[in-house]
Write a protein that binds this DNA or RNA. Structure first.
Lengths: 218, 218, 218, 218
DNA sequence: GATGAATGAGCGTTCATTCAT
DNA sequence: CATGAATGAACGCTCATTCAT
């Protein structure tokens, strides 16, 4: 059965705790920044906010990070280096990976797991999206890496299914595009504040939609 | 045949030119703001930027709009009031509306038209998305209206197709969610800077994906 | 019997109406400025406020008066030239002037009349006081003239009473100082927002206090 | 014998020096603000003025005080909390308090002491007066406290004198009103820039006027 | 390493004043 | 004479960043 998806925050705590170049205060600063950036966005978070939430002096924030943007970049670096792989690992490690259960089961597991991840980490996803929209560097450096990692976790399975002629013979990027878009459609609803009464029902429709959209006609 | 979708900028020029409460300089201010907000985002655009680009004094910016945010809201208001309906009208007026050509033709026309709109207006869509992510009021006031307008243009057709048992018997919101997500998947690619070699090819895949995903099994 | 004291505003209307170098709009501007300065003070009144209240365009305000301060000076000039003499005239014309009724009646009439004037014109008095505190030019040009006028109305009587040995043989300026201070004590109460339950009772005490303070011991 | 009344500025220096939550620069800011507000009024003093006079950067002004008005309120608060009680204490402690010397001596001491205070602190009194005229909150919060303190120092003596039938049997508020008005009459002269040749002579007249005005007829 | 007072460039905004129509 | 759009200097205030302790 599936594990409850870990929260980005928990991943960060792990990532920071295992880095012995960071003092406790520096860890607190990063964690405070993650939460504040997620809650208010990068631009609307002041270094004073971060210092206060981290329980340190304002000068301390600058001891290790030369600028506020450096903090964001450190967060993104850790996100890409530690959090995304962890999340992928968590995802990949679930039993379905080896079960070869066909398209339906693949989708059930994928959607089931990643939709929970989206719901659990929605605030963080918003900040990533927001930054990606306004910051080209972020797009290039971070999103692409996330994309690569995500593809690494999803694409092989899609390719396998395609080889088995369970799904249509479309290019990799189109398959990924539709799978991701369908999963993200839930996040769009959340952003637009449309109520999502029943997450499990959502999952069922998503699986069904993707299954019909991708499966080869019998 | 389909009309070439107009650019948001052109719609704005129209919307502003036909408003005789606005002086030429005030029109220049709004147009400058649209471009700057689209290029650098709301927060990173200064009122001095706007004034300079519009070729007016900084005080002039405040003659009609009390705050910088008022300018954004004016833009959004015009977008919702003039641009979206125009775009919808343009969309709705295309012949397919009355052609009862079935699911396939509906999707061909919808995707064909709206994908071009997305591509033509991508910079503007980015502002809307960016603001929507960080501004709850904007979500409520603007996105909801756009949503209503968009639904008014799409939903009746989906309902008709469902009644004719051409598409699956899913709730309205799920049908819309999947159609919108599929269309937006292209915008996501653009945001992530993934190259889109062939727009027409994209359209073909989208139509195909939606058609398979929604059509009832024969 | 005593006439009800006219309001500064009414004096201004008269002053303006009889000046045929002023257009109607210019009169409206001055009247609007008088009311706004009295209500919010000179610094917190904008030329836009004045134009709006006067029902004219902002440029019109500057047609006759080169600066905002010019308007204040015009008001003060009229106040000194027309309003104060009128008020004095109104005061002087009351019957007591000729009645030679002695100190008591003099005080009764003076206090009775001027206290009502203070109460009726309190907002205007506040602006004069406020400007006088922060503007040396105003003090020199306006207050001194008001002082001269006021003295012209009061001092002769005091001098007469002194000659008749009804009041103490103190210098003119001390007599005026105490009479004015006693009358103004009511304005101080009003400024400090201390309730003044019974104006007539106040008058009685004032008369009594001044009478005892100034009368020669029998 | 009477102590020479201290200047408000000296009281402020004391009040600030003994507050160890204030850095030296913050003290300089308050002192600079006191002088500037007194000299030019609150509205005509810019934060840049204050910073320059205090010898600090403009941002430093805002480190502790969120707004310019906060600085005024801090000044008023210190005035009420430290300066007024000190002044009252200084006043009350003079020997006359216990001397039961009758109305004449009471007035001699009161006038002698407070008139010097008024003369020494005239610039500061002007700020207070100016703000009181244009700011209702200031009136309520500050003047009322000053009033209470002042009454505490004066009223008991007046009540005692009244009980002893040395002064007329008028209500407390009228007694205070006349005593205060008489003292303030000097400030009025100063405001109007009327020369006050001989302060001691002024005091003599004031004492005499009040004594005659309030004493019961023998 | 940690502190927090100090900095100052830069922002959004106001408003007295000007001038072409 | 009247208009009102346009101006731009100046203000109050913010906040990322520095540095002496």
């Amino acid at each position: 059965m599936m594990a409850k998806p870990t929260t980005v925050n928990e991943f960060f705590v792990q990532s920071l705790a295992t880095d012995n170049t960071l003092t406790v205060k520096q860890q607190q600063i990063i964690l405070a920044a993650v939460e504040l950036f997620a809650a208010k966005g990068f631009d609307h978070t002041t270094t004073s906010d971060i210092a206060t939430k981290a329980g340190v002096a304002e000068g301390t924030v600058y001891k290790r990070y030369k600028t506020k943007r450096d903090i964001l970049e450190e967060i993104m670096r850790r996100f890409v280096r530690d959090v995304v792989p962890q999340a992928a690992h968590e995802f990949v490690n679930d039993e379905w990976t080896n079960s070869h259960g066909g398209l339906h089961q693949f989708l059930v597991e994928l959607i089931g797991n990643r939709v929970d991840f989206i719901v659990a980490n929605f605030p963080f996803i918003k900040i990533m999206a927001s930054e990606a929209l306004s910051n080209a560097e972020m797009r290039n450096q971070v999103l692409s890496k996330i994309g690569v990692q995500a593809m690494g976790a999803i694409l092989p399975h899609l390719q396998e299914l395609r080889k088995q002629k369970q799904i249509v013979d479309w290019p990799d990027d189109m398959l990924i595009q539709f799978v991701v878009a369908t999963m993200i459609s839930l996040a769009l609803r959340l952003i637009v504040d449309l109520p999502v009464a029943d997450i499990e029902q959502q999952k069922t429709y998503m699986v069904s939609f993707l299954e019909r959209g991708l499966a080869v006609q019998k």
